[in-house]
Simulated assay, not measured.
Amino acid sequence: MANGRGNPDGSAFHIGFDTSGAEAWFDGVALATEESIRPAAQAGAEELYFEARIRVPMSAESHYFYGKNSKSTGVRYLFEPGSLRNAIYQVFSKDNSGQMKATYHISWNHQKVPYGFMVEYGTSRAPAHPFIRPAYAARVDFALEVARAHLVKRVGEAI
């Protein structure tokens, strides 16, 4: 809000602005933005998560994975169809996030399905059947748009 006054003799004038209202509005926008970052990032991560679950190859029958245990002894693990798909997760990364930044990881649980890396990247005996990298390539632009739209909506509601 502006106000002005002049000297009676007309030799000078003064004008001032009260910006407290604008400062409060900007503070509200900043707070709404900060509070909306994580939900917006999660909305985008959700798109990538679902795309990875759609793209993961799934065997028709149970299969074995051969590995070694902590004693370097050979072990045979039985996995049911859909084990890899069911092991895909999305999680908020506190270590990679901060003020005005939220990061989510989408991957598979390596403890539940230790063969996931071999599916994604292949081995010397088996070709790769990637699903995480193609999911990202196919949907990253859409996921970013979803996140942006979510952020704009939530900040707009707060304003």
Rank of each mutant, 00 (worst) to 15 (best):
E145L: 11
P114W: 11
T123Q: 10
T19F: 11
A45W: 05
D141H: 01
I37D: 06
S59C: 03
Y136H: 12
Y64L: 13
A128F: 05
S93Q: 14
R76V: 12
A40V: 02
H110N: 12
L151F: 11
L48P: 00
I106W: 02
P8F: 07
Y77L: 15
Y77E: 14
R76C: 03
E35Q: 14
A40R: 02
L31V: 11
S70D: 15
V91L: 13
H63D: 08
D9I: 04
Q90D: 10
V91A: 15
G21C: 00
R125M: 10
R133H: 05
M58T: 15
S83V: 05
V113A: 07
V56M: 04
E157Q: 12
S124E: 11
Y77Q: 15
I88V: 10
F26N: 02
R154D: 10
E51S: 12
A138N: 14
I15L: 14
E47D: 13
A40P: 04
A149E: 14
G21M: 01
M100R: 13
V155A: 01
G28P: 02
G74A: 14
I159V: 12
E35T: 04
L151P: 08
R154E: 13
F50I: 05
E51Q: 14
L151D: 09
I88R: 08
S36I: 05
Y104S: 01
V113K: 10
D9Q: 12
S93Y: 03
F26L: 14
G28K: 13
S93P: 03
P130G: 03
G98A: 07
S11L: 03
E35P: 00
A32I: 04
V113Q: 07
